[in-house]
Design a protein around this nucleic acid. Structure first.
Lengths: 181, 181
DNA sequence: ACCTGAACACCGTTCAAGT
DNA sequence: ACCTGAACACCGTTCAAGT
């Protein structure tokens, strides 16, 4: 059985989640897949092309996919906000990939730009939900920022072994960010 | 002029801030310092020993140093909480080092344990300030968690180029976490 | 006390040759 | 269409030898 590009991307995803970008190495990946490293270059131009494919597949999962899921599951703005908080409860592998990508962005301007787009999309989504649930525009902006930073913080926290937040925590966070002035 | 261990640690710090753990490489560091890589092994047993020295120096700066600074500058619990929020406004290099260390912790159990200790210390400090400013114990715990996650989130955010939060943001965050029930 | 220089291992990349 | 195998460059590590 010969391999396709997807097999390499999948293996790369696992390596990324457990060891960061620099753990995505052609030779160990090849060994894990049972081929020689030379064969990698049939599927990709170089290691960078593999990393690009990994990022592209993550971009889809990490924004559109989440927003669609939350929108499909819940009706009202408040219910959607609550639903979004539960998304943080995703399996640690997801959090570890997100975190690894953020570090990667810290040292690669191109990745940084792509990450920024995703952050803008997500934060806008939160802000719109807050406005839709009755907050004044400027206040909604600040509150969206707070909520979004908590989410990023939790990704980071969970990714290095911290316990995921519990229901009481999410309840309190929800109460705070949706509180009317 | 010959070098001391501190010169290598300082160079390693810069590499860590700009490129993560894996950018801390003996050969480029040696080149930057104007010596051959062989001379590195006079000062350190191996690359791991250098990384350990880097982490130890960061541990001091990142907890005790910050808490002492805040305590020295401000008197009341509320003023100290506010002062702590301003610490996030530290230069981006500091945030980038913190972030790089967190990623590092994501793949290294020993680093993870040392990081966890620091997180416990910092979160306890926030919780105590909240209790001292009149919040009930359980609520203080939840609010401390929220505040601490926002801080971690902001480190992450700033480290990949996001704008640091402004005064209005910190004001609102302060209001929320200190609000009496 | 601190550094050089040569050696070796590991992994990214290339490429001619195989099936 | 997909893979092997050998080659070369880069960097971590060792160590005998230099000053």
């Amino acid at each position: 059985m010969s391999l396709g590009a997807e097999d390499w991307v999948e293996a790369a995803n696992e390596a990324l989640a457990s060891g960061g970008v620099d753990a995505v190495r052609v030779e160990p990946l090849a060994e894990g897949l049972g081929v020689t490293k030379g064969s990698f270059y049939w599927h990709f131009a170089d290691r960078g092309a593999l990393l690009d494919a990994v990022l592209t597949s993550w971009e889809r999962r990490a924004t559109a996919a989440i927003i669609e899921l939350v929108d499909a599951r819940h009706e009202t703005p408040r219910a959607r906000l609550k639903g979004l908080l539960d998304v943080t409860q995703m399996p640690a592998a997801g959090a570890r990939i997100e975190h690894a990508i953020r570090v990667w962005g810290a040292r690669d301007a191109a990745i940084q730009r792509r990450l920024a787009k995703i952050d803008v999309t997500r934060e806008r989504y939160v802000r719109e939900l807050l406005v839709a649930s009755g907050l004044e525009k400027t206040l909604a902006e600040t509150r969206a920022r707070i909520l979004y930073l908590v989410l990023i913080g939790e990704f980071t926290w969970v990714s290095h072994g911290g316990a995921a937040s519990n229901a009481a925590f999410r309840e309190e966070l929800f109460t705070l960010v949706t509180a009317k002035r």
